[in-house]
């Protein structure tokens, strides 16, 4: 993508795109809960939701109504302001991160002939911005857990701190190697780098796996959902939450899952480039969908790890591997020049 396209970025365009992202992603996040339940049910030879609407599709609406109408309880001894703000932080950071992520190829709207770059804001440090935003998302669970005057919440926020901070390192290091290869921090450049059909995962399999593992930890998904591990800490940082505040955490988690899916697709799996006869937009939807499915699949198949195992894995296995991967990548790049 060269600089000639930049004038097309108008304020109106950005607002429209922001609203679209917000609407679509939160809808998908909601729909994701339905999909998750269905997939998990099938994998356990159950039906999952099936009574509300055809195939239980309207379960999503039922849940929405339930969440909106449920009593919003704020515990007596909670720090009320922080308690109220925390879920907004989680949801907001998740959505803000999506601003710098390109999902589709750029396109021209027919009839009015408006060229649309399909990214809300193609900032040249996109990756740093996304990683930064996701790291800022840490404040959501952290504050929520500490504000609610509940010991499970405190444990939940302690776990948040160690888990998110630790895995930020792995995410950053693992994605460093591809950045070195591409030489840019813009997602659009990553996509274009793979336009020849060779996905970065082929060059950087270790980085991909490390990123994926770290992604599970960052999004608080099984097997690393220790923040709200029911069997150990009731519901961790969301113990005292109910109604829509709890719903915001939920949406944030699913939005993060989508973000991780998008980053993995763009950085490692060829982005929105056309593949054979399949158009690019379809390819990327397929890739995001698969990564989403994969997260559910993993949840159905694998057990939780313990916090100590999680830390052990992070600092003793993943982090060294990531460093080694960076060093090797650097050496290879140096030799290739």
């Amino acid at each position: 993508m060269d600089a000639t396209h930049l004038p097309e970025v108008t304020a109106a365009g950005v607002i429209i795109k922001a609203v679209l992202i917000l609407a679509v992603v939160s809808a998908i996040a909601g729909f994701g809960t339905y999909i998750e339940r269905k997939i998990l049910a099938f994998m356990q030879r159950r039906y999952g939701p099936q009574h509300v609407g055809p195939y239980g599709l309207l379960q999503l609406i039922a849940d929405g109504i339930k969440l909106f109408t449920k009593e919003d309880i704020i515990p007596q001894h909670a720090n009320k302001i922080i308690f109220a703000v925390a879920p907004v932080i989680t949801a907001a950071t998740a959505f803000i991160a999506l601003a710098a992520v390109p999902v589709f190829p750029d396109f021209t709207i027919p009839f009015i002939d408006v060229y649309v770059p399909s990214i809300a804001s193609d900032i040249n440090i996109g990756i740093l911005f996304v990683l930064g935003m996701m790291a800022a998302g840490l404040y959501g669970p952290l504050l929520a857990g500490m504000a609610q005057a509940n010991k499970w919440g405190i444990i939940g926020s302690a776990r948040t701190a160690i888990q998110f901070l630790s895995y930020e390192v792995v995410t950053g290091l693992s994605i460093l190697a591809p950045i070195m290869m591409v030489g840019s921090l813009s997602f659009v450049d990553f996509n274009d780098y793979q336009a020849d059909g060779t996905w970065l995962v082929v060059y950087q399999p270790v980085a991909f796996i490390l990123f994926l593992i770290a992604g599970f930890a960052e999004t608080n998904r099984t097997p690393f959902d220790l923040l709200e591990h029911e069997a150990e800490v009731i519901s961790g940082y969301v113990t005292e939450y109910s109604g829509m505040r709890w719903g915001l955490f939920f949406i944030g988690e699913y939005a993060n899952m989508i973000t991780i899916g998008v980053i993995a697709s763009v950085v490692f799996l060829g982005g929105y480039n056309d593949f054979w006869i399949i158009p690019g937009w379809l390819m990327i939807i397929g890739k995001i969908a698969f990564s989403f499915f994969f997260m559910l699949w993993v949840r159905a198949a694998w057990p939780h790890v313990r916090p100590d195992q999680l830390m052990w894995l992070c600092w003793k296995v993943l982090m060294p591997l990531a460093v080694i991967n960076v060093v090797i990548t650097g050496i290879v790049i140096m030799l290739a020049q």
């Binding site: 099938f42 994998m43 030879r45 159950r46 039906y47 198949a301």
Partner: peptide, 17 residues
């Protein structure tokens, strides 16, 4: 294993519910 069970449930009539 989980994937196989899903296939069993959906396409081979082995839904347990």
């Amino acid at each position: 294993v989980t994937f196989r069970e899903m296939i069993n449930a959906l396409f081979r009539g082995k839904m347990h519910t």
